Amino acid sequence: MTDDPPLPPWQMDWTAEARRVFDAMPADARRLVLAARAELVTAPDPYYRGIDTDASLPHWITVRPLASTNPGGPHIADLAGGRGWMIYTFIRRHAEPQITVTDAFWA
């Protein structure tokens, strides 16, 4: 066993309500959410902290803290210019870091 911190890909889990909303989305919306998921689980830091760190994201996704007063707390991934979003937290546990989606929406 090493003391090196874990690296991506991260695990991702959904609350029951967020998963229910995701499952009810139209197919094109689910594809965008799954593409955003792929970006999040492979990012070195799913919170994209710092200046221009999210510049590598596709143009249709932006990531920001849900509350500017809590930059280490829940984040929102806005999708398709605000048509939808995923709210998630990233828990950097030593053994098993995990992203948990707590809310999902598509208009």
Rank of each mutant, 00 (worst) to 15 (best):
Phe105Glu: 15
Ala80Glu: 11
Pro97Asn: 09
Pro44Phe: 04
Pro6Thr: 08
Ile91Asn: 15
Phe105Met: 14
Arg30Glu: 06
Thr15Arg: 05
Arg83Asp: 15
Gly82Ala: 02
Ala38Ser: 12
Tyr48Met: 04
Trp106His: 13
Arg31Trp: 09
Pro44Tyr: 03
Arg93Gly: 07
Glu17Cys: 05
Gly82Leu: 01
Ala43Leu: 00
Ala95Tyr: 00
Ala27Glu: 15
Met12Gly: 04
Ala16Trp: 06
Asp103His: 10
Ala16Glu: 14
Pro5Met: 05
Asn70Gln: 14
Ala29Lys: 09
Arg20Ile: 05
Pro74Asp: 11
Arg31Ile: 07
Asp4His: 08
Gln11Trp: 02
His94Tyr: 10
Arg37Ile: 00
Ala24Ser: 14
Ala36Tyr: 00
Asp103Leu: 04
Trp85Pro: 01
Leu66Tyr: 11
Thr69Trp: 13
Pro8Ser: 01
His59Met: 12
Pro26Gly: 09
Arg37Gly: 00
Glu39Thr: 01
His59Lys: 15
Pro46Leu: 03
Tyr48His: 07
Ile91Pro: 01
Pro44Trp: 04
Ile99Trp: 07
Ala55Leu: 05
Ile76Cys: 12
Trp14Tyr: 12
Ala77Gln: 12
Phe22His: 11
Ala29Ser: 11
Arg83Gly: 07
Met12Ile: 15
Gly81Arg: 08
Ala107Cys: 07
Trp60Asp: 08
Ala36Phe: 01
Pro8Arg: 00
Ala80Gly: 02
Asp23Ser: 15
Asp52Thr: 09
Pro74Phe: 05
Trp85Asp: 08
Asn70Arg: 14
Ala36Leu: 02
Gly84Asp: 12
Ala95Ser: 03
Phe90Gly: 02
Phe105Gly: 13
Trp14Glu: 03
Met1Pro: 12
His94Ile: 06
Asp23Arg: 13
Arg92Ile: 00
Val41Pro: 06
Asp103Gly: 03
Pro58Gly: 02
Pro97Asp: 04
Leu57Cys: 06
Pro46Glu: 04
Ile91Thr: 15
Pro46Val: 07
Tyr47Cys: 11
Gln98Ser: 10
Met25Asn: 08
Arg92Gln: 13
Arg83Lys: 14
Pro65Ile: 03
Gly50Gln: 09
Ala67Arg: 15
Pro46Trp: 01
Arg30Ser: 08
Tyr48Ala: 05
Ala95Arg: 01
Ala27Tyr: 11
Leu7Met: 13
His75Cys: 06
